[in-house]
Simulated assay, not measured.
Amino acid sequence: MPTSKPAYLLCLLALAPLAASAAPQPVALPQAVSAPAQGAATPAQLRELRSQQAQWQALPESERSRIRDAARRLAALPPEQQQSLRATFAAQDARFRDGWRLGPTLGAQFPKLEGLFGFLPVEQRDTALSVLRQLNADQLAQLTLIAQRTPPQERDTVRAAFLALAPADRDRWLHAHVVR
């Protein structure tokens, strides 16, 4: 399922400081999305940068490559269009913006998955992210339907059951829960 150009750009804006520094050929991004000058960062900013770096490194190389390509496209846009995209992104809810740090594939689906995966216990986060990244487009689409249909009081149970599945059992489980 192809992702639209704006979706790539939104993902880039969430990971821009890291995409620019991780690109094999540096992309000149405006100051508005770059890291604070060395020595000028507060402890909170440093923690945030470390978190962003860890999120960047956790992305599969194919996702990082897509983000680098988006960085190049963003840098090629006229400055006023870049600023417009940044303003649109900044105006979004923080949870929406943070969802894009999961990369282009999961970032595009995050608003639909948030019910099941937006508020995970710490001990489930790595497992959940690993499982979500293993899903193909059809499985991810089915899971978004389940996430949207699951009442709040059942989310923990449904999520735990899904995360406990062996990869070979996911298709059957997803299909059974979509047709309910």
Results as ranks from 00 to 15, higher is better:
1 M>G: 15
2 P>M: 09
8 Y>M: 00
12 L>R: 06
17 P>I: 11
17 P>Q: 09
18 L>V: 10
21 S>R: 12
24 P>M: 02
29 L>K: 01
29 L>P: 04
31 Q>T: 15
32 A>I: 13
34 S>G: 10
36 P>R: 04
37 A>H: 05
38 Q>N: 12
40 A>E: 14
40 A>Q: 13
40 A>K: 11
43 P>E: 09
44 A>T: 14
44 A>Y: 07
47 R>H: 11
48 E>I: 06
49 L>I: 15
52 Q>S: 10
54 A>R: 11
55 Q>H: 10
56 W>N: 03
57 Q>D: 12
58 A>N: 07
58 A>G: 12
61 E>Q: 03
66 R>I: 08
67 I>E: 03
68 R>W: 15
70 A>M: 10
72 R>L: 11
74 L>W: 13
76 A>E: 05
77 L>V: 15
83 Q>G: 08
86 R>E: 04
87 A>R: 07
90 A>K: 08
91 A>M: 01
93 D>K: 04
94 A>R: 00
94 A>L: 04
95 R>N: 01
97 R>K: 08
99 G>V: 09
99 G>I: 10
102 L>K: 07
102 L>R: 09
109 Q>K: 05
113 L>M: 07
115 G>R: 04
116 L>D: 03
119 F>E: 13
120 L>C: 02
124 Q>H: 08
125 R>T: 15
127 T>G: 01
131 V>Q: 10
137 A>P: 01
138 D>S: 08
142 Q>F: 06
142 Q>S: 07
146 I>H: 02
147 A>Q: 01
147 A>P: 03
154 E>G: 00
155 R>P: 08
156 D>H: 02
158 V>P: 07
160 A>V: 09
161 A>P: 06
164 A>C: 02
166 A>I: 04
169 D>L: 14
169 D>S: 14
169 D>V: 13
170 R>C: 11
170 R>V: 15
170 R>L: 05
176 A>V: 12
177 H>N: 13
